[in-house]
Amino acid sequence: MIEMQNINRVYDTGRVKVHALRDVNLHIKEGELIAIMGPSGSGKSTLMNVIGCLDTPTSGRYSLDGKAVNDLDDNDLADIRNRKIGFVFQSFNLLSYASAFENVELPLIFMGMSTAKRKQRVTEMLARVGLADRMDHKPNELSGGQQQRVAIARALANHPRIILADEPTGNLDSASGKEILQLFLDLWKAGNTIIMITHDPSISENCERIIHLKDGMIENGAV
């Protein structure tokens, strides 16, 4: 479902040009569980952002579900992020002033779902990550692991087929990290495509495929 050919992402900072991705070729099939690894600055986040249509490549061809992403405008990209992709970030990225319920509700609002349906869906999602009793809590009233579970519920809310997670356990203690990993494994078993960035071998060893990045190039795991 993900096809990349000669993808380059160059940051032009004025004085120097940073080559964050160099001629990346990548194929990912539906239902895969993938870990992306590599040293800091190797381009892992950049690759993930390009996959998630949050960033656009400087050159190269990228097609998602057989559709060329290069030709899409901001509006279409927003739709793709809303319906096909679920993002989970290292720092959770919840809205601090909104409750767990309201955070999970966001992508549903952007999708245009009715209030009644939203209520049902949000409740279902929070129950799935084991936070049915924390719906009205603000992020600062939740533990790190709980916050990340809210973020996962939010990523899952629109039933996307691809979950992208950028170091989802990076800010968590090992016990919470294990819980989160288990959640991802369950999702994978349920048929989702999951791509995780991680530095932690105990996480990547659970994945069927590992992509190694170095200096913006894929060392192995491209196919």
Binding site: D74, N75, A78, D79, F87, N93, M111
Partner: peptide, 13 residues
């Protein structure tokens, strides 16, 4: 940051 999060979740411009 909030605006960025909303855009990542599919908020249109």
């Amino acid at each position: 940051r909030e605006i960025g999060i909303k855009k990542a979740l599919g908020a249109k411009n």
